[in-house]
Design a protein around this nucleic acid. Structure first.
Lengths: 197, 197
DNA sequence: GTCTATACTCTGATAGAC
DNA sequence: GTCTATCAGAGTATAGAC
């Protein structure tokens, strides 16, 4: 009863595929990149690649989880005081990886399908980010920096929506300052007393 | 030098295709709907359909423009005092057409490609909506309902981003109140004095 | 200009040998 | 675990009838 990827070699291969696929999509973008190309770049056949992922969509879900983990370590956890600073840091970094932004947005749209494999990732992702933002709001309310009348869950939904929507506008016009707009909106939403300084 | 669709019959056909395609995608969603199916439903061959649209993506662009025009007439212009009310009304209506929301989000992601035919639509769309929102902010600043320190362009970018991002969260969880969240965010962003009542 | 028939290419996916 | 071979379906392109 050994699951796929349980053996050392399989695990390494799977990780290698994930790493290469992430790089290829970051470089080439979502469209115009086939699994055959990813497979070739890994040095494996298409069925060889598909041995590790049920479908193309499952691969995408895995890529997004992988990238989320990397972002969290590199930008959110390290060097950020709270979830808002972390979110802003990730958004700032996003402008360096347009291919991944495109992949993320495309999958966010696809997650609307109840059957789509990426749905699970997005539900988890949105839930986690919303919770951490709501916690920041509650924390600042406890210390009096933010008015008690503010609804933490509402602000959390709004900040997540803003992060996603700003990425769309940035792909249309790279001069849009995603991180800056997010930060300014946060200040307006929770009141200037709660602004990041 | 007669363009495609210059004749009365062609114009009618093109409109019929647009109408049927919009209905099919609203019903079936973006995925799992092929051009062959749309063509069959129109009662025309696939090349017959493609005679009116350069490519699948051009058809999508036309669908989005058509839908935008309908929404504007039906919800924004009629029964709404200003651009914010109109935007909220369209968002409220969106929960009745999940297939079109999915199509819109998918194309919004695809518009990141500089070569993609829908890019033009989204640039126009975002520009127009942002301008009308910024005008509302400036109008309220002139009448003193909104503080002069608020940046109209920033608020406009934020409101558009919010509208897009809330649709993503709504597809993940239909209990999300897109219109309500948008309205509350607007009140916070421009200050309670400027809230819709 | 409008439209059909046919065929081409590429995609993700599967079957089965080794 | 990985390959070769093959598949059905997608969007697209061309030829030509009316």
């Amino acid at each position: 009863m050994t699951a796929r990827g349980s053996y050392a070699k399989g695990v390494a291969r799977r990780e290698e595929i994930l790493r290469v696929a992430l790089a290829v999509f970051a470089r080439e973008g979502y469209r115009g990149t086939s699994l055959r190309e990813v497979a070739r770049e890994v040095g494996v056949s298409l069925p060889g690649l598909m041995h590790y992922f049920e479908s193309k969509e499952h691969l995408f879900a895995a890529i997004l989880r992988e990238r989320d983990a990397v972002d969290y370590e590199e930008f959110a956890a390290a060097g950020s005081q709270d979830a808002i600073e972390g979110l802003v840091a990730v958004m700032r970094h996003n402008s360096d990886v347009p291919g991944l932004v495109e992949l993320y947005l495309t999958m966010a749209a696809a997650a609307g399908d109840a059957e789509h494999p990426v749905r699970g990732f997005f539900v988890d992702h949105v839930t986690a980010v919303r919770r951490s933002i709501a916690d920041v709001v509650r924390g600042r309310q406890a210390s009096g920096r933010v008015a008690a009348g503010i609804d933490p869950e509402h602000v959390a939904r709004v900040m997540v929506a803003l992060a996603d929507g700003l990425q769309v506008q940035w792909t249309l016009d790279p001069s849009v300052d995603m991180a800056g707009d997010l930060e300014r909106a946060w200040a307006l939403l929770v009141g200037d007393a709660g602004a990041v300084r």
